[in-house]
Simulated scan of single mutants.
Amino acid sequence: MSLKNLNPRFSLLLLFILAGGMLRILGEGQVTPYSNVTPIGAMALFAGAYFNSSWKSYVFPLLTLFISDVIVQQVFYPEFAQGQLLYQGWAWTYLGFAAMVLAGQLIIKKVNIGNIVIAAAVAAVAHWLITDFGVWLGGCTDPSTGQLYTKDANGLLRCYAMAVPYMKYMFIGNVVYGAIFFGGFELIGSRIYEVRSMK
């Protein structure tokens, strides 16, 4: 395929997704002071809202998340890698990420502030419920007690309660980076017809 045949809209979408992956890596590397406020949720919502092919909505952001995860794990947290590419319980994280893409597909039919904020909240809650269920199921330790979460309703609720601050950071990241991603794309689309119109 020649450069002339490249779809400008699709290329710009990919550029935004890749930027999300880079920002995530820079945050984990403490290049930015906001490592807990990540762009991955906004990246998922953005992909769900804009990619016209359902499989592209999932494949490209998931692939970007995977590459950034491998870099973060191997470069910044090798002590947790234990010879593996990814961290323990990664499948639950990816399931939560896919749920955020779905939130973008279902809620952001029309790009406006209200829909983005609602989707950001739904995505943060979905990610929290799914990933921390995986944390509880995987037999992780309660950081406040040093003991394993008990395998009952109390243990699950305790696990969820301990993760509430991270859900808050996820929501903030969804809103802040969502404003950048959606606002930037809409601004470019308003100026470049090919970005606005092409599928």
Rank of each mutant, 00 (worst) to 15 (best):
G138K: 03
Y58D: 06
A121Q: 05
A120K: 02
I67R: 00
L106P: 03
S11V: 15
E79H: 14
L13D: 05
L45R: 00
M167W: 06
W136I: 09
H127L: 08
Y50M: 04
V164H: 09
F10K: 14
S144H: 11
P165H: 02
F80G: 07
A81L: 01
I130H: 01
N52R: 14
G20Y: 00
K168F: 15
L13N: 01
V125P: 04
S11C: 13
A161I: 14
M170E: 08
M100L: 03
A98R: 00
L6C: 08
A120N: 00
L65P: 02
I192S: 09
R191G: 08
K109A: 07
M1H: 14
E194Q: 15
Y160E: 05
A42T: 02
N115Q: 13
A123I: 10
F10W: 09
M167G: 11
I25Y: 05
N7Y: 00
I180S: 04
G173F: 00
F60N: 07
L129T: 08
W90N: 02
L156D: 12
N52F: 10
A49K: 02
L12I: 09
Q30G: 10
K199V: 15
A49F: 05
G146A: 08
I188N: 06
Y177I: 03
R196S: 13
Y177E: 05
S197V: 14
I180F: 13
S35G: 14
I71R: 00
P39R: 00
Y166I: 07
A124P: 02
L86M: 15
F181V: 02
Y94R: 02
F10A: 13
W90L: 07
M170N: 10
W90E: 10
G21K: 01
V176R: 01
N5E: 14
V111H: 09
L106T: 10
F16G: 10
I172G: 06
K110C: 06
M100N: 04
G89Y: 02
K4L: 14
Q147L: 15
G48H: 00
R9D: 02
R196D: 12
T38F: 11
F80C: 05
I118V: 15
Q105I: 15
T150S: 13
G27M: 05
Y177K: 01
L63R: 05
G146W: 04
L14S: 07
V135D: 06
T64D: 11
G41I: 04
E186A: 12
C159F: 04
L14Q: 11
N36I: 13
G134H: 02
D142H: 04
M100G: 05
